[in-house]
Nucleic acid binder design. Sequence first.
DNA 1: CCATACTGATACTAAATTAGTATCAGTATT
DNA 2: AATACTGATACTAATTTAGTATCAGTATGG
Lengths: 138, 138
Amino acid sequence: MKLLTKNTDYAVRALLELSKTEDYVSAKTVSKNQKIPYQYLRKILQTLAKNGWAEAKEGIHGGFKLKAEPSQIRISKLINIFQGDIELSDCLFRKKICFNRKHCALRKELKKIEKLVVAEFERLTLADLVYKSKEAEI
Amino acid sequence: MKLLTKNTDYAVRALLELSKTEDYVSAKTVSKNQKIPYQYLRKILQTLAKNGWAEAKEGIHGGFKLKAEPSQIRISKLINIFQGDIELSDCLFRKKICFNRKHCALRKELKKIEKLVVAEFERLTLADLVYKSKEAEI
DNA sequence: CCATACTGATACTAAATTAGTATCAGTATT
DNA sequence: AATACTGATACTAATTTAGTATCAGTATGG
């Protein structure tokens, strides 16, 4: 069971990379520094740009830069983009078997846990990670 | 993102089904009542039996029955069996890049969330679900 | 004004995980 | 001995995740 898939993981790390400087950073550079497959990363950066988290500049010396403050970039949002809604379980057979109380009892409990996780990921921002990174470098 | 895959979900529902009676219940019956594909369910029940959560009886009028009290069957254990360890993220590049503090900062935060989730699933037992089911039937 | 180093868009393949099926052998009951 | 079941295991299908490849277009520096 994984809460983060690779593309979310890569997205976070790419954004952290961008947070290092005000300049535009090319996908190539991010790819090198974070050891993320180049073409895969490009798609991720494009998605980030489309969703307003990064700004792209085309042409030579182009690249990407953060468009929002790290403290405004919530990991939950990134999960939403790359993995869809945070939803811990489907209500299988939603319509038919939810009359089946047993199943719903499970579902109800799962929903509770789901809320916890969502809250945690909403609390967590890129800034938290930047801050902790710096702390660790001392 | 799903915390429970279908086999865990099926396992829980199968165990709930078994909890209804002291008698042995055949896979066929469980399959019908819970609308779980028969052959798939059989594998799940066999796994539950192997892991000591259900007792199997062979031959005609055989089937499965609970081997533990519902209050002793923790959902976390079922997750462990059917989905492996609860682990929200791999530390990709574990050995090499964990020197990379940025990644580790993320990982540290994920571990915290992971602990929360694990604690919740350890708290939750089959009995909680049975109880809530009965409540709902009033 | 053009070579270069980049992004935009998109189509594609590969790998891994999850879900489901099928089959044959053996066992307890009547 | 027929029946209704489990044990074991091999297999296929579907879905999700990960990664690759390619062509078109853009900004910049020489």
